[in-house]
């Protein structure tokens, strides 16, 4: 019971701090309008807005009222998921986010799965074959991976796998012909195509996903591999591992069960941090592969200085990022009981 309570209070603290961070981000996003030189209403509606529209918007935002009033109004609106309308597409920003987010989520999750699977595996292999060629090989690959501009990596993958060796598509999420057959229900094409029972389309969607996911997942893969290696090496030096060996446990059990559970704690933290990187990297990756996701949408919005869209998009991405970090914190508490014990001491 006490354990559950401390865990709950820990979570409550985390919730509060995330709430504060989000409030800060919302303040920044709110101030954006006022930091743009010139009239705020023109900044939002564009140079060619009609006088009538400008007056209406000034009225709606309360531009003649004090700043704190405007901020409160802004908070009230976003609490109701009202981010206003994009001046470029004239659509409500929240609708656009809903439309484009699944593509980004699918890409990000695929990249994450790729980087965790191969990153952890490479890290384990490097750690148990420490000092051998295999170790040096995987670690030098991961070192160069960190300096790699992902937008260039993506272009090179396109060059290799859709030009020199034309086996994978390089743009979009589905071939146009198939696009018409598949009705979008979840927005996740892998799920939608399966729900439609259209296996040709499913294979096509997977093929479209491979290059973008590798592009986006490579840097996290490199970092996860390095972290797994060093963390596992540290754990393997501890006395309880020697004890486990002395008990006569087989090697796979010592490493797979005893060592892995403890060495995964720092790896989890890294994975959480990398998620933020993935959301940022998705913007670049989507641009390379003409992936119709939130990143491409946000890029266009910034280019057009579509302020409402940028505000909504940034707030949304920041919220997702913080939510993921919260989930990681919960897992962290689960894997590392010291965090709970630490709270009890206080």
């Amino acid at each position: 019971m006490r354990k559950v309570l401390t865990l709950l209070s820990y979570l409550l603290q985390r919730f509060l701090s995330i709430g504060l961070s989000l409030l800060a981000v919302s303040l920044l996003v709110f101030l954006m309008v006022h930091l743009i030189p010139g009239d705020a209403a023109i900044a939002i509606l564009g140079e060619r807005a009609t006088e009538k529209a400008l007056i209406e918007l000034r009225e709606e935002m309360g531009l003649d009222k004090p700043l704190y009033y405007q901020y409160a109004k802004f908070l009230w609106d976003i609490a109701h998921l009202d981010f206003g309308r994009s001046f470029k597409t004239k659509q409500p920003v929240i609708e656009e986010i809903k439309r484009y987010f699944p593509a980004t989520a699918e890409l990000t999750l695929a990249a994450m799965a790729f980087s965790i699977l191969f990153g952890v595996a490479a890290g384990i292999i490097a750690a148990i074959s420490r000092g051998t060629f295999l170790d040096y090989f995987s670690m030098s690959i991961s070192l160069t991976g960190i300096s790699m501009p992902i937008f260039w990596l993506g272009l090179m993958l396109i060059l290799l796998f859709s030009y020199f060796l034309p086996i994978l598509p390089s743009t979009g999420r589905l071939d146009v012909v198939l696009d018409l057959d598949v009705q979008s229900r979840t927005g996740f094409y892998l799920i939608d195509t399966l729900l439609a029972g259209n296996f040709a389309a499913f294979r096509n969607a997977v093929a479209h996903l491979i290059l973008p996911a590798i592009t986006l997942g490579t840097i996290p893969l490199a970092i996860i591999a390095r972290m797994t290696r060093s963390s596992l090496l540290e754990v393997l030096n501890q006395p309880y591992i020697t004890t486990a060996y002395a008990k006569g446990l087989p090697r796979w059990k010592v490493i797979g069960k005893h060592a892995m559970k403890n060495s995964m704690v720092p790896v989890l933290t890294i994975i959480g941090l990398e998620f933020g990187y993935l959301l940022g990297g998705a913007i670049l990756t989507e641009h390379i592969f003409s992936w119709p996701g939130l990143g491409s949408w946000l890029r266009t919005a910034v280019e057009a200085r579509d302020v409402r869209a940028v505000q909504g998009g940034v707030l949304f991405v920041a919220s997702v990022f913080m939510l993921v970090n919260l989930i990681v914190d919960v897992l962290y508490a689960y894997f590392d009981p010291r965090i709970r014990v630490g709270n009890e001491d206080r």
């Binding site: 990187y277 959301l279 890029r299 910034v302 940028v310 991405v317 990022f321």
Partner: peptide
């Protein structure tokens, strides 16, 4: 707390 490129995009 924000992905760096996101913050850079806000500033741009």
């Amino acid at each position: 707390a924000m992905p760096s490129i996101l913050l850079a995009m806000v500033i741009v």
